[in-house]
C-alpha cells in the first residue's frame, strides 16, 4: 500500500458516495446512466469473488464489501426506488457492444484459464469501458448537472492515481500487472477529454457543461 493507491481508493469511494448521495438527496436519478451503474455492479461482483477464497487484509475485505454494497444500493435507487425519474429514453447505449468484446477478450487474454481468473480479467476489461453509457448519455442530452461532473471527476482521478501507484510499485517492488495496467491506461484516456472540459468549464463557474 502506498499513498497513491490509498488516495486512488479514496477518490473511488468519494465518487460512488457523491452519486449515491446526489440521488438520495434529490430523490431523483435524472441524468444518471443506470446502464453504467449496472455494469459497475457487475464489475465488482465478478472481481470480488475472491472474498470467498482468499484473505488479503482487513482493509481489502472491508473496501470490497463497501464497494459491492454501495454499487448495489445505487442500482436499487435507480431502478426501484426512484425509477420514475430514471431517464431511460436517453440511456440508450447498446451494452452488448461492450459486453461481447469484453467477454471474448477475457477468454483470450488472461493469466490462467480458470473461471476465477477469466471473471477477474472480465471485470478489469469491463471496468475500463463501463462509463461509456454515462458519457454517451451526456453527449446525447448535451449537458450534465455539475454534481454528475464531480462524480466523473473523482472516478477519473481514481484511475489516474492508480497509474501513479503502478509506476511507484514498478520502481519500488518490480510489480507490473500487464492486464490491469493496459486496461487502466485505456480507461484513463476516456476521461481525458472530460477532465479538460471539467477544468475549463465546471471549475470556472459555469456549473453545467456539455460534451462536444
Amino acid at each position: 500500500m502506498n499513498i497513491f493507491r490509498l488516495a486512488g481508493d479514496m477518490s473511488h469511494l468519494v465518487a460512488i458516495l457523491i452519486l449515491l448521495l446526489k440521488i438520495w438527496r434529490s430523490r431523483s436519478c435524472a441524468g444518471i446512466s443506470g446502464k453504467s451503474q449496472v455494469l459497475f455492479a457487475l464489475v465488482f461482483t465478478t472481481r470480488y469473488l475472491d472474498l470467498f477464497t482468499s484473505f488479503i487484509s482487513a482493509y481489502n475485505t472491508v473496501m470490497k464489501v463497501v464497494f459491492l454494497a454501495l454499487s448495489y444500493a445505487t442500482v436499487y435507487l435507480i431502478y426501484m426506488r426512484f425509477r420514475n425519474s430514471y431517464d431511460s429514453e436517453n440511456d440508450t447505449f447498446r451494452v452488448e457492444f461492450l459486453l461481447v468484446p469484453v467477454i471474448g477478450l477475457s477468454f483470450l487474454e488472461n493469466y490462467s484459464f480458470t473461471p476465477m481468473e477469466i471473471l477477474w480479467t472480465f471485470s478489469i476489461f469491463l471496468e475500463s469501458v463501463a462509463i461509456m453509457p454515462q458519457l454517451f448519455m451526456i453527449t446525447k442530452t448535451g449537458e450534465a448537472e455539475s454534481i454528475t461532473n464531480h462524480y466523473l471527476f473523482f472516478l477519473g482521478l481514481y484511475r489516474a492515481l492508480y497509474i501513479v501507484n503502478w509506476v511507484w510499485r514498478y520502481h519500488t517492488e518490480g510489480f507490473f500487472d500487464q492486464i490491469a495496467v493496459v486496461s487502466g491506461v485505456v480507461q484513463t484516456i476516456f476521461y481525458c477529454d472530460f477532465f479538460y472540459l471539467y477544468v475549463t468549464r465546471v471549475l470556472r463557474g459555469r456549473g453545467k457543461m456539455s460534451l462536444p
Binding site: 475472491d50 481489502n60 464497494f67 493469466y111
Partner: peptide
C-alpha cells in the same frame, strides 16, 4: 506467479 499478485488491488 501471476495469480495472486494482482489480488491486493481493488
Amino acid at each position: 506467479d501471476a495469480e495472486g499478485k494482482h489480488k491486493d488491488e481493488l
